[in-house]
């Protein structure tokens, strides 16, 4: 057996799993969007002319973008401190970030039901303090979805950025300081430009993750805050509109892939050294 044949023989089973289990079904879903409606593009025309669908798409976009932005700011600040911490403290902080990351989405979203619910901690505390007379309804608002999403994705951002920041040699910030750069200037002119690839990777992960999430908007957003993920499920499993569901799926894939492509382009433009 030649090396080439052997290589393909070893690579084939997993390849078949991906092609048959993911490739074909997803292509079939795409096909449904063109064949399921009145004309080839009817499903998309219906999607984009429906005000409700546009609202859902825009809301999903907004939630994902805001989540990304907040995660970016807090994740970067925390990652910077973690990366600069002494070894022992650093490993504890990494454990503290990994733990929620490896805990399930349902459990983590559920925590916010307990916190933000009518009888939740926030309301109980505010009532006890006399700050409010009636419990606030915080669940099923865009705010509650975003808080839970940020909670979901900040650990991912921290871990991505810690790796990137650690790979920036300390000598470079020392060199900047020795050349007269104040800490702020050294950060803007040296650390930030070098962290850009990591910031982009982190942003892509968070954006696509929140754009396609299901459990969190289901629990904290409900019917009122329908997002693409929950909308897809509702179309598919409640109203059995498979063409509609397939169209939502296709839009999600396109947005996800477009984000990944656009961001990796951006990363290349901002980082001429890599090329």
């Amino acid at each position: 057996m030649t090396a080439r044949t052997l290589a393909w023989a070893l690579a084939m089973p997993a390849l078949l799993l991906v092609l048959l289990g993911l490739g074909l079904p997803v292509l079939a879903t795409f096909a449904t969007t063109f064949t399921g409606g009145e004309g080839p593009l009817a499903a998309y025309a219906e999607f984009f002319t429906s005000r409700f669908r546009r609202v859902v798409l825009w809301r999903t976009f907004e939630v994902a973008a805001v989540t990304t932005l907040i995660s970016l700011v807090f994740g970067f600040a925390a990652a910077w401190v973690v990366a600069k911490s002494p070894a022992r403290l650093k490993s504890w902080l990494i454990i503290a970030a990994v733990f929620p990351l490896l805990t399930g989405v349902v459990v983590r979203s559920f925590a916010w039901l307990v916190i933000l619910g009518r009888g939740g901690i926030v309301n109980e505390t505010l009532l006890a303090l006399g700050a409010i007379a009636e419990p606030l309804s915080m669940l099923y608002t865009q705010g509650s979805v975003i808080v839970a999403m940020v909670y979901l994705f900040v650990p991912l951002m921290i871990l991505t950025l810690v790796g990137v920041l650690e790979s920036i040699p300390e000598d470079l910030t020392d060199a900047a300081a020795s050349l007269g750069a104040r800490p702020g200037a050294a950060f803007r002119q040296v650390v930030l430009p070098m962290a850009v690839p990591g910031l982009i990777v982190g942003s892509v992960l968070v954006f696509t993750g929140s754009f396609t999430s299901y459990a969190t908007p289901q629990l904290l957003g409900g019917e009122q805050q329908m997002m693409m993920g929950t909308f897809l499920y509702q179309r598919a499993m409640v109203t059995f509109d498979w063409t509609g569901a397939s169209t939502i799926a296709a839009v999600m894939v396109v947005v996800t892939l477009a984000t990944v492509l656009a961001m990796s382009r951006l990363a290349q433009r901002l980082n001429p050294v890599a090329s």
Binding site: G21, A28, T212, W242
Partner: peptide, 16 residues
């Protein structure tokens, strides 16, 4: 499988 949204994978698997 990382690039394709999980929920799309789930839906497509159910359908096909």
């Amino acid at each position: 499988p990382v690039l394709i949204p999980e929920i799309v994978l789930g839906f497509s698997l159910m359908k096909s």
